[in-house]
Write a protein that binds this DNA or RNA. Structure first.
Lengths: 321, 321
DNA sequence: TTGTATGCGTTATCAT
DNA sequence: ATGATAACGCATACAA
């Protein structure tokens, strides 16, 4: 490995001069700078990140923590983060799994964006307390080193329920996400409010898990007690797709017997037959905003909590009654 | 920040004893080790990655480099890598974009898995020459520090063409990937061979780009010169899906006028109507194998080039003639 | 068994 | 304008 020491030797200057030259410090003559850069190039010099980090206590790298790498959901979100971060001279790396948490605590990251409910509030607060800067996308967390950038779940869930009611549905199911999920709980609260407000609604809740299997299971339950058109608001599109799968084997049809609204507007939603009605938001914007706030937090520029707005996408998975 | 120096002071021992204790060196008494661990916990000690890396010249982190985070985000592939790496005490991070290349050269990674044709052969070889360990999934590259884990493109493309011919098709199109793509070129070579072998085939090539838009454009071209049932082998599923979209607006139907085979077996392939015939392989296995070979390469345990086998998934996007 | 001392590659302070 | 030197936190060869 070639270090600034080697450059110094070859260029006949001291290491501090090399460091200055390499970092564009104006104290150094144009002439010596040129010479040093030449030698550096010639020796194939590459700076050592570990040494720089040890000294400067920053890496210019941000981590995005996800529960899993699988599933087609996060592509645009991450792209949004990456583009925003790159603009500000930061790099983004995607991490997943408990093992990777060490990257945050051991100082390999200047900050993190969290979308991983397996990352507990408690642990997150510990990191924040140690001075790490965090943006959370999946919970409310109050700390000077944490900012929230959250979906407007309340609006989304309300849109969904009101849409079903507007289409004439009076028998409603809510298929929820897993217990710990902040998004799921917010959506559930909004659903209950909307249902209460509507009055005269037959309403039930089915616990789900955000995966296809639980959507299929929910569909099964609904079919078993079928006694006329029913409508389900699945708290994400994955589960809604699971319903499509479950009904394939039966004589019931989506949009005719079982009416479905999802949440997230994932790509498949536009391809299934009939097209899935769902709640849409811009993943890219979400990611970009999260990145922006994180950089502000790191730079002490007054980062603030943000909310991502959502809209309803109608579809033939919901028929009129 | 609390360092081993602080621990040493609080525990009344020297920093080397602390280091030994923390690293489980048997030289240190059970008693002192216990005391030291207690103090460490009490002080909320977290090791500093930069310092450790600077000293040991390894990070226990592997990077996976992708062209983009968007689209079919290679979820299972990455998950396969991650699981395999975690088993061996390594972490995985996902990187994308030229900016992130520095992580490799600056020594923040012990090795890298490359699936990014924007990463040039030349640059890759430079990294390898500097001692970095690489696994390439998207090209052939010969170097002692590089191993290849490649799809069996030849088999896949041959399966696809032979399937079309078996179904009675005699007018064939190949919709290729972008110019630089290794996979695309391999598939193209195999297609030409299979077509030659079959004889009496009307055959043409349409340059594509691996994205939906180029698939749609290809469909447009085929329709414009339509004079009877035509079959297209799209070199990936994305483009095949693009064909579905393009035909929606027309009176032509997939599986009836235009017959289509894709490559990759992405999730949507099972959901479109009619279901897309495609070439399947296990992404997870691909990732796991790549990770395994990389670890072997790093440990000097004789890593070898590997090939990922593929199979044909038939579908109603190809009708009989 | 424990302590002392050195160096990893950088940055940055202070002299010169 | 340039150089000498001291950290940064850790691992480790060598001393005791």
């Amino acid at each position: 490995m070639v270090s600034i020491k080697d450059i110094a030797r070859h260029a006949g200057v001291s290491i501090s001069t090399v460091s200055y030259a390499l970092n564009g410090n104006p104290k150094v003559t144009e002439e010596t700078r040129k010479k040093i850069l030449d030698v550096a190039k010639q020796l194939n010099y590459v700076p050592n990140a570990a040494a720089r980090t040890l000294k400067k206590r920053e890496t210019k790298i941000i981590g995005a923590f996800l529960t899993t790498l699988e599933g087609a959901f996060y592509g645009e979100l991450l792209q949004g983060m990456k583009e925003e971060l790159n603009k500000r001279e930061y790099d983004l790396v995607i991490c997943s799994g408990t093992r990777s948490h060490r990257m945050l605590s051991e100082g390999m990251l200047d900050g993190a964006i969290i979308l991983d409910r397996l990352f507990s509030d408690e642990v997150l607060l510990q990191h924040a307390e140690r001075g790490h800067k965090l943006v959370v996308l999946d919970r409310e967390l109050s700390h000077r080193n944490v900012v929230q950038v959250l979906l407007d779940n309340k609006a989304g869930a309300t849109f969904a329920i009101e849409y079903l009611i507007r289409q004439g549905h009076r028998k409603l199911y809510a298929v929820t996400g897993p217990g710990g999920s902040f998004d799921s709980e917010q959506r559930l609260a909004a659903v209950r409010q909307a249902v209460d407000r509507a009055g005269e609604i037959q309403y039930a809740e089915i616990p789900g898990n955000f995966d296809k299997a639980s959507g299929a299971a929910a569909a099964q339950i609904i079919i078993n007690e079928y006694d006329g058109p029913a409508a389900a608001f699945c708290f994400n599109d994955e589960m809604a797709i699971g319903m499509y799968q479950a009904l394939r084997e039966t004589s019931y049809a989506i949009g005719e017997h079982l009416h479905v609204v999802g949440f997230d507007h994932i790509e498949i939603a536009d391809y299934v037959q009939p097209r899935l009605a769902t709640v849409h938001y811009s993943e890219k914007r979400w990611g970009a905003l999260a990145a922006e706030q994180l950089i502000k937090l790191i730079a002490n520029e007054g980062a603030e909590h943000e909310r991502i707005y959502v809209s309803l996408v109608e579809g033939d998975s919901v028929g009129q009654i």
